[in-house]
Structures are given as C-alpha cells and as structure tokens.
Design a protein around this nucleic acid. Structure first.
Lengths: 346, 346
DNA sequence: AAACACTAGAAAACCGTTTTCGTGTGGATA
DNA sequence: TATCCACACGAAAACGGTTTTCTAGTGTTT
C-alpha cells in the first residue's frame, strides 16, 4: 500500500523546495524550464494528485454542489440529477446527492451537514413534509450565510432564491385540451392532495381547460389521492362508480393503474376511453398500449438549475436579482389518445 | 449576510485562546466548568458549526463515501443507492454519488476526483465499457492507496475487494424452473450480450434449469440483445419467427416489450404464454397483466455494501480477508405466470 | 567597478481545527 | 517557608497544500 504522494514528497525526492514544486506544477514562469520539466515528469511518474481537501480549505471553495431530493427511486428526480450531473461535470463541479425521504427533519439535518464546508451551493426540491409544516428556516439560514440556493419543481414562494419550475398549469391545460380536441367530453382527473404544489397546479390546469371549453366540472370525476400505497383501490372505485371517456393523470403510475381497470372492464383504449399523464419514463413507453404523456424535460431542468447555481458561484454575482425559469412541457402522443388528425377528418 | 463564524471568532470575542474554545466545545475536563459554559452558550448564540473541511484535513477522514454507478435513471441502481444512503446515515456518513454513464473514461475521472481527499471509501458498480476493455488500473490504484473499495452487482473477479452480488445464476434457475413447473416447455430467453456479467450468469441459470429437466436448448429461442435502444425490433422478430409458451427475461423492460407482442398477437397471458423477468420495480407491478418477477433486494444490497465499507473504515481493519456476499433473489408471482397450485390440481 | 535586472529557491504565512506541550497560579504538603 | 502537584488555560505545531515575501546568485549595462 503506497501512501498518497504529496508535494512535499516530491520536493524531498528531487531535493528542491516545496515552493519550487508548487510553482513548477502550475507552470509559473518564475521557475526554469528544465526544472519545471523535471518536476512535472516526476510528479506524473509518482502519480501525484493534489489533495482537494487542502485546496478547498485554502480557497474556501469545494467545487462541490449539493443536491437534496425527496426520493431517488423516482424517475423525475433521478433524471433531474442526471441533468445536474451533466452540467456540473462540464463546469468542473462534483455533485453530492442527499435524500430527504420527504421528511422535514432529514432535510434540515442534511442541509446543515452539507452547509458546513462540504459544498459551495445547493439545489433542492423541497420535501412534502416541509411544505406541509411550512418551516423554511433552514433555507433562510443557508442563504444568510451567503450560500447560493436553487430550488426546482417543489419550490417555496417566500424563499428568495433562483428557481426552476415546470409549467404545470399550462402542461395540464394543453393535455386536457388535447383530450377535448380528440372528442372526449367526460374527463376524469387522477391527482394528488392540494398541498403538493405540482398536483395543485395540474388540477388548476385541468379546471381551466374545462372552463374555457364550457365543460361542467363534475366533482365525482376528481380523485385526489393522498396515500400512494393504496391508490389502486381508490382508482378501482372510481372506475366502478363513474363513467367517463378520458382520464387525465398527474403521473404515469395512476394512469397505468387506471388503464388496468379499463382493460379489465373490456373497454378499448383509446376508442372507448383515452388516457394522458404527466411524466414520461420507461413506464409510458413500454406499457401496452403505449401511454401518451406530458413530458417535463427533467434533464433540462437539472441542467438549468445547475447552470444558475454555478453561474452565481463562478461569477460571484451579488445576491440581488433572483430569477425563476419556467420550463415548458410538451405532449408526446402515443397510443392512449386518439389522433387529432383523424378526429378532424371524421 | 452573516459570514460563517469560526472558532477563532469566538476566541476573539470572549478573549480566550482558540485552543480553549476548541476544548470547551468538545467538553474536555481540562477547561473549567464556567468557562466551558460561557463558551458553549456563546457558540450556540452565534450559531457556530465546525467547518467539516478543516476537520477532514486534520483527521484525514471525510466521513463521506463515494458511490459510482453507471446510470441513475435506473431502478436497480437508484434503489441500491437508497440502501447505501440509509445505512450511511445510520452510521454518520454522507454519500457522494457520481455517474459513469457506462463510460470507462468517466469512471476513471470520477474515481480520481473523489479519491483525492473527498471521500474515505468507494462503492462501485462497474461500467459496461470498463468490463469490455478490461482495464482495471483505477481500481488497483485506489486500493493501493489504502482506500477501501466495495463492488456490487457488476464486479470484477480479479480485483481484490469486498463484493456484494446477486445470486443471478440461481435466481434465473429458479425462475425458469417455475415456468417449467407450471407446464411451460418451450421457453425463450431475452438476455444481454455475454460480456455483461449478470446477463451471462442469468443465461447460465436458464441453461442449467433446462439441462436438469432434459429440455433441449433451442438456439433460436435465445435472444442476446446488444443495443437496448433497438431492442423492440429484435424482440418483435423473435415473436414473429418463433413459437414458444414462455419467456424468461433478464430485465423488466424486455419482458414488458415481449408482452406487447403477445397481446398484439392476441395470445392470452399466462394461459397461452407465460412471462417472468428479473428486476421488480413499478413497471412490473403496474402493467396489465402484472408481471411476475425475480426480485433482487436492491435496498438490501446497498445496505450490505455500505455496511462492509463502513465496518472497514471505522474498525480500521487490515486489508486482508475480503469477502463476497451473495444476496439471494426471490420470486414474486403475479399474473404473467400460471399458479403452481392450479397446475398441480389439474 | 558600481548599479541594476532577473531568475531560482528558501521561508513563512494562511485556511480552521485538533493536539501537544508548556506555564503560571494556587493550595496542600513537608 | 520551600517544594510539589493539580488545575485552568494558552502558545504553537500539525494537517497538506497555495501564495507571498524575502534572499542569494548570476549576468548585463553604463
């Protein structure tokens, strides 16, 4: 086991001073070419790598960015992380991922842990519990210490920082409009409880689309699911007790579970009943029939968030003027919605 | 914006030495009770948090563990990370996640980056490309520097380190046996090319099960998929050109895509054709009919890997005696395989 | 020959904390 | 009263680098 070689080791071996080594490694003209040559060659030979801890301590910069997400086994969040990772790598930053597990206390602990020198800035999607208890002191503290913070998707209105959000309302609006355009009239919605920001926004988009098309809102067709583990029963009940010709779902899972009910009832998709859902992952692509979706460009969101953070870090921009980027969604038509063209031709 | 307060600030304010502050904060009996009292109270007031970088520098420990996985938008890998995170948190460690993107060079770069002081040890699933080019120098270097390394799932035989692997061969064996027991005789396999360790192992398990039951191996029923992006066509061709009454797949995706072909051909699942696949994520649970799977206990794998690493880190065990933990799989029977009971009753 | 410019390298400061090794005060002991 | 020992605290080194300042030596210019 060969220990890590330090600048000091090189200096000793080559019988020069450590400052000479330091300068030579950074190609300073102050050091003669052949000395520089020799030192660099030896350093490479010894497989020397500067200790990043020492450098971090000296420059008070870690070149690490901390990402805190509620869940990692989650297509949207992991895809955002991928985007963050991509851009961070391009700009020479590392990514440290921590999970809040949707818990307020874990979010606080993780932030405090990372804030003490491990990272230069945060990218966060706020935990459900935090949104519920509305306690944002950990965000304020971090900002107060001069550490940049970027929120994405699950954002808090009152916290002053850069934000990246999905255009959930309009995404839902267009999705429901698409159902309307293809001839659907009684549209059920599978959504979440209102304290989940994105669920609320998507529900509002659904309502807006109905309103603009003079379709009456039927309360019985609005299913707000609290507990994701028991969603299957709730969805089944909806299918048993109500009739409708389309389903708009705020996520893939609810939609696919809905499709199961439709299939078992012997209904044809999309002829008898159409489906469209937020989130575009393997699930949508691989189920049969393939699910039409509203894609949120998660990689893009990650990249933008990382961009905002690193710009602030590198340019040392003063803290005034925070911006909120809104990322538009797009609809991917697959097999669970009728073609707009065909319905026009009819 | 209030700057971070250091131990030095406290010393200056209270007009004592920095060593006194350091000791008082750590409750050393060397310091008088009322001084300790005063210093701790003031530190709390100032919201003092020790700088972890400095501590890392001092004790040459970061309390961080680095996880390198090929993909994050991947159910198995992200679930393993969740397991690692869980256990790391219990033991007071942070997790730094880096992605190799299945690329050899990114794997090397990321390891070098993290190895320079950012972390105390590694948990790695080897990238496809690395397995292909068989260049493992970065693993040897890290081990040589005395940094513990734990490999999981995608492991390299020759690298001496702790390992956690799925019992892929037996998992596949039992899965195929299950198909056999429920009356299937012509069983197709959807697998990957042989340089992917787990694909190879699962194929071997398939072969073993057939051999032990005196079922002839039909080469045409073995589909080795290289490029995951074009797998749909390849699978379709198999369904068009061959007949079989069951499919064993090394992952969920291939199976679900296979099911699509069966459904379109109007075949009944599982009566006409059965399906069973490795990996148990939302996909299996939510497709219709729900897919029977071989679950790999990914959280468990993550926990074990983290356990092995942290034990070595905390106990400072000498580097001899590496172990390989084999995690058994289990079969989850859902709707794509016939019930064993029923076939017995028949 | 004196003044000057340049190059190379030695030495020290610095980052925030822990740790080792004093040092001075006071009370107890001889 | 002189010696010893706790006790409470402080000075300084260490961790591993970077950076700055200072010194010494060489060669060129006038």
């Amino acid at each position: 086991m060969s220990k890590k070689v330090t600048i000091r080791d090189i200096a000793r071996e080559l019988d020069v001073s450590i400052s000479t080594v330091s300068k030579a490694l950074r190609n300073m003209k102050e050091i003669g070419p052949e000395t520089t040559q020799k030192i660099q060659a030896f350093a490479k030979l010894m497989n020397y790598k500067p200790n990043s801890i020492a450098i971090s301590l000296k420059n008070r910069k870690t070149k690490n960015i901390g990402v805190i997400i509620p869940e990692i086994v989650h297509h949207f969040f992991s895809t955002v992380v991928k985007g963050v990772e991509e851009l961070a790598e391009e700009r020479g930053y590392n990514v440290i991922v921590c999970l809040s597990d949707e818990s307020f206390s874990k979010e606080v602990v993780n932030m405090e842990l990372l804030a003490n020198g491990s990272i230069d800035g945060f990218i966060v999607a706020v935990a459900k519990e935090t949104m519920k208890v509305k306690d944002y002191h950990h965000f304020y503290e971090v900002i107060d210490q001069g550490m940049p913070l970027v929120m994405f998707d699950r954002v808090v209105e009152n916290v002053l920082c850069d934000k990246v959000v999905v255009d959930d309302l309009m995404g839902a609006y267009y999705a429901v409009n698409h159902l309307l355009e293809t001839g659907c009239r009684r549209i059920a919605i599978l959504t979440t409880v209102d304290y989940i920001n994105v669920g609320k926004m998507r529900t509002d988009g659904y309502l807006k689309a109905l309103a603009e098309n003079d379709i009456p809102v039927v309360e019985e067709l609005i299913l707000k699911i609290e507990d994701i583990d028991n969603c299957e029963e709730e969805i089944q009940k909806l299918f048993e007790n109500q009739t409708f010709d389309a389903v708009f779902s705020v996520n893939e899972l609810f939609a696919v579970l809905g499709m199961r009910n439709a299939i078992r009832q012997g209904r044809k998709i999309p002829e008898d009943i159409s489906f469209i859902a937020f989130t575009d992952s393997i699930l949508s692509k691989s189920v049969t029939p393939a699910l039409s979706t509203v894609t949120q460009h998660a990689v893009q969101i990650g990249r933008i968030a990382a961009q905002m953070l690193i710009n602030r870090l590198d340019d040392e921009i003063s803290s005034d003027g925070f911006s909120t980027q809104i990322v538009k969604t797009s609809i991917i038509e697959r097999e669970t919605t009728k073609s707009t063209k065909i319905s026009t031709f009819k």
